[in-house]
Write a protein that binds this DNA or RNA. Structure first.
Lengths: 224, 224
DNA sequence: TAGATTGTTAATCGATTAACAATC
DNA sequence: TAGATTGTTAATCGATTAACAATC
């Protein structure tokens, strides 16, 4: 990825920087909600367990978030990052699979705030169809394709049982979805232009396992 | 982290390698379930969008997963990685907060398989108390502290409303939990010896947003 | 002014890749 | 044997950190 910063210089922004931007925004939104007005690179970096120089180096690719000598203004930084990440451009979304996980995600208020308005929820279970979650009705899966086309849905959250994951993903793609947030513990195959983000709960758990179990291990095994 | 590999040489294993181990294991378990017996570094790497040489380099720190000329045996590699990651040592776990998200996670069968047997579910809501999920009853939150102490619970999954997250986390820590898997969209403060893994759904969504929106951008902005 | 802070560059550090001998 | 594959090292590449002038 390349950007043109405020002084007209071109930079290739490293992937590592790109991946940190959402973390910065997430933390800044929390600060904003807590009523914090100013934050220094040092404070923000410390709260994220990184070095202040790294944070400034990251921001430097985009340029002009503050002036030398002045800390960052939270209310200016938040919208600036939102624009860079693309959160300010709404992307209509649906959830497919209204089991507990799907319903739990549907209740997650931040989606709208992050530019992903929830437009529909779909399930095959007739007992669920008709229920509403935060004003969004659960519809029969058979109506999904037409709904995606009619409402220009771009992203689908996949929270169906594993055994139907690929089949439902195929339907999403055929209907026109360009991004899939996959919560099922399996791989789904899609055409290259469709972006899949696998939210592998197993991986998160194993990372925790790894760290948890290193507690109490010997110096020999723990190192640094 | 330092390890001693099979030939007695010591290596400092890079963090980047450590973070990939769960991805390897996750993929290998899928292959195993699909009945695949052998896999080459090339096949496995391709399916994970990395280079084969990187995968072999990663494995090299631990040594001896195969022999030159022979591909990896899935049935040997899986337990080897499980041991390295620590999945083979069970860590009893509870879920605190039995809303949709908590119930969705409780239904996730892989927990046991990954060494995290679910021993209890807790909630304040009397309507939920007494329900069972996969044989595990939902208990009143007031019983959590005693339960953690009695059953030697090590890890707690935090799926309570944001406004009580810190308070509940404090109770968990006081009771003796050493790892918290935090699904609430807020920071929780814990003593340094307690490991917190934040499962920030917002961050995953923003990463998807970032990628989704780069589709169709100009070359100027997209670069390579 | 003095202390704090950013923007920016250069130096250090770590991670990835290529290459190939050894092996099946 | 010929082709495929791993284990292993060295070379390349990219990311992090330190340092400090400029600024408030």
């Amino acid at each position: 990825m390349r950007v043109v910063n405020t002084k007209g210089k071109k930079f290739r922004v490293p992937d590592a920087t790109i991946l940190r931007l959402p973390l910065y925004l997430d933390k800044l939104i929390l600060l904003q909600q807590a009523g914090v007005k100013e934050v220094s690179s040092r404070q923000l970096a410390t709260s994220l367990d990184i070095k202040a120089s790294q944070l400034r180096h990251d921001f430097h690719y985009f340029g002009g978030f503050s002036k030398p000598g002045r800390p960052y203004q939270v209310d200016k930084l938040v919208p600036a990052l939102e624009e860079i990440i693309g959160v300010d451009v709404p992307v209509p979304m649906i959830i497919v699979g209204a089991g507990h996980l799907g319903q739990g995600l549907a209740n997650y208020r931040n989606f709208e705030r992050l530019g992903f308005p929830l437009r529909g929820i779909f399930d095959v279970d007739p007992k669920l169809v008709g229920l509403e979650i935060r004003g969004v009705p659960i519809r029969p899966l058979s109506e999904m394709t037409a709904f995606v086309k009619e409402h220009g849905i771009k992203v689908g959250v996949l929270t169906v049982p594993v055994n139907v994951a690929q089949d439902v993903a195929n339907q999403m793609v055929a209907a026109g979805v360009v991004g899939i947030w996959n919560f099922t513990p399996t791989d789904i195959r899609t055409p290259p232009q469709v972006i899949v983000r696998n939210e592998r709960l197993a991986v998160g758990l194993m990372c925790l396992s790894f760290k948890t179990k290193r507690i109490g291990q010997t110096e020999e095994l723990r190192g640094d």
